[in-house]
Amino acid sequence: MAVAEDKTAPKASHVSDPALTPFLQQRFDPAEYLNATLPSLSLPGGASRPLKSGNAASLAHLSSQTQDLLSQLNAHTTRLSAILTQLTDDILRGGARLAYEVEVLRGETIGLTETLTDDLKDDIEKFLPGGIMLPDKQPTESLKSPTSPTHVDPQPSDTTPDYLSDLRTLTTVRTRLESVIKVFGEAMHWTLPPSEVSLTSSLISVSAPEPGADNASREEKGREFAASLRSEISDLITGDPDAGREKAETRIQALRDLATVWKGTAEEKARGKFVEGLVKLAEDRQSDVERSRERGQQQSERSGSSVQKAQTSAVQQQKSGGGFLENLQRIRGFVEQ
Rank of each mutant, 00 (worst) to 15 (best):
A4V: 15
A4W: 08
E5K: 13
E5H: 15
K7G: 11
A9K: 09
D17Q: 07
L20F: 07
T21Y: 05
F23R: 00
E32F: 00
E32R: 00
Y33C: 02
Y33N: 03
L34I: 05
P39C: 09
P44E: 00
A47T: 02
A47M: 02
L51S: 07
L51F: 07
N55H: 08
A60D: 14
H61F: 04
Q65C: 09
Q67H: 08
D68T: 14
L69I: 04
L70A: 13
N74W: 01
T77P: 05
R79W: 06
S81V: 10
T85R: 09
Q86Y: 12
Q86W: 11
D90I: 12
L92Y: 02
R93H: 09
G94Q: 13
R97D: 12
L98G: 07
A99Q: 12
V104W: 00
T113G: 05
T115V: 11
L120F: 12
L120N: 10
K126Q: 13
L128S: 13
P129F: 03
P129V: 04
I132Y: 09
I132D: 05
L134F: 07
L134S: 07
P139V: 03
T140P: 06
E141P: 08
K144R: 15
T150Y: 11
T150A: 15
H151G: 06
P154N: 11
P156T: 14
D162L: 15
Y163I: 14
T169Q: 13
R176Q: 09
R176E: 04
R176L: 07
E178P: 01
I181Y: 03
I181H: 02
F184Q: 07
F184R: 03
F184V: 10
E186Q: 14
E186F: 08
M188K: 10
M188S: 14
W190D: 13
V197S: 03
L199N: 08
L203W: 10
P209D: 03
P209E: 05
E210Y: 08
P211A: 14
N215Q: 15
N215E: 15
N215H: 06
A216R: 05
K221G: 06
R230G: 10
S231I: 02
E232R: 13
I233D: 01
D235H: 10
D235K: 11
G239C: 06
A243V: 07
E246D: 14
R256Q: 10
W262Q: 01
K263T: 15
K263C: 13
A266H: 00
A270I: 03
R271W: 04
R271M: 11
E276K: 14
K280H: 11
L281W: 03
A282Y: 01
R285K: 15
Q286V: 09
S287C: 09
D288Q: 13
V289P: 02
R293M: 12
E294S: 12
S300Y: 05
R302C: 03
V307K: 09
K309D: 12
K309V: 09
A310L: 14
A310P: 06
A310R: 08
V315D: 09
V315W: 05
Q316K: 10
G321E: 10
G321A: 11
G323W: 04
F324I: 12
Q329D: 08
I331P: 00
R332Y: 01
G333K: 08
V335R: 04
Q337I: 07
Q337A: 12
